[in-house]
Design a protein around this nucleic acid. Structure first.
Ligand code: FES
Ligand code: FES
Lengths: 144, 144
DNA sequence: CTAATAAAGGACATTTTTGTCCTATTTATA
DNA sequence: TATAAATAGGACAAAAATGTCCTTTATTAG
């Protein structure tokens, strides 16, 4: 469904949001540890998220990653997925035709578009804050 | 969503089904031409479909690939996807945790499972016959 | 029986994704 | 100001996915 990079990116963002709720800034090392991902690779992904203004980074001692409280409401999963995996998942053809096109549809088009729209809607309506709070009360996990 | 191999596999199976409705057996060369896929790679994928009894192959002159009329009803997309991509799409965690587990769920679990189930149901309820007939009447396309 | 045709399958090549390592830059604090 | 801590970023490495080529096997038709 999503690339590894995207999975790590979402998990990282949720963890950063969770810690930011406590006013804590976190390092790549800590993030990778807590979401069980390769450190250097995670650092690359965080660069992408930073460039896309999804998380905020601060260099130097006491630096690290954080997310402003307001951004947790405006940033949704759709934005993270688009920043890392692009928009193929939102506009691509399920059977791999060059583009999805309702006027010259593949055999799966109608049924696929339904699913794709549901997914898109779900991602767009899921905020980082929502995901972080589930974690906070111990109902959900970022590694296992 | 699906791997390239899986996309080619589905398109190939639908094309074979369509031609089998006319009693025509088709070669890899023709299939690859008609679904716009790399010939040798398509041949590999057809081997997998053959081993999984999704299509039937015949060697030698006048040989090629075909699908029995009854099999077009029983073979659904779910079977093809599982044969080529495995079952990660049906049981995997959306955020990449080792396994999807409702008793120790990732933050996206509930919402992701909904989508995943919809996808699974859609694939399971879509037969090759259904897809082939849409093609037959010229409503859908396998390449563009 | 022989030649030709088509799938099966193994080995290899290319590309993309995933992952690592090292250096540069920024910045807080002693 | 010097040092150390942290992200940024480039270059490289490994693994997986995608794609190619060639030989083997089965089968049909002459
Ligand atoms: S054309 Fe294939 S999904 Fe729209
Ligand atoms: S645990 Fe992540 S989808 Fe179920």
């Amino acid at each position: 469904m999503f690339s590894k990079a995207c999975e790590y990116g979402i998990r990282a963002a949720v963890y950063i949001a969770l810690q930011s709720l406590d006013g804590r800034r976190v390092s790549v090392t800590e993030i990778a540890e807590e979401i069980d991902s390769p450190v250097a690779f995670t650092a690359k992904i965080l660069q992408q998220l930073t460039r896309n203004n999804i998380v905020h980074s601060v260099k130097g001692p006491t630096g690290g990653f954080e997310i402003e409280r307001e951004d947790m409401d405006t940033v949704n999963l759709s934005m993270i997925v688009k920043a890392i995996d692009g928009d193929k998942i939102y506009v691509g053809c399920g059977l791999g035709l060059k583009e999805c096109n309702a006027s010259k549809p593949c055999p799966l088009h109608d049924k696929f578009v339904d699913i794709r729209n549901d997914l898109s809607t779900m991602l767009k309506s899921t905020s980082l804050y929502e995901l972080a709070t589930g974690l906070e009360v111990g109902l959900t996990y970022l590694k296992r």
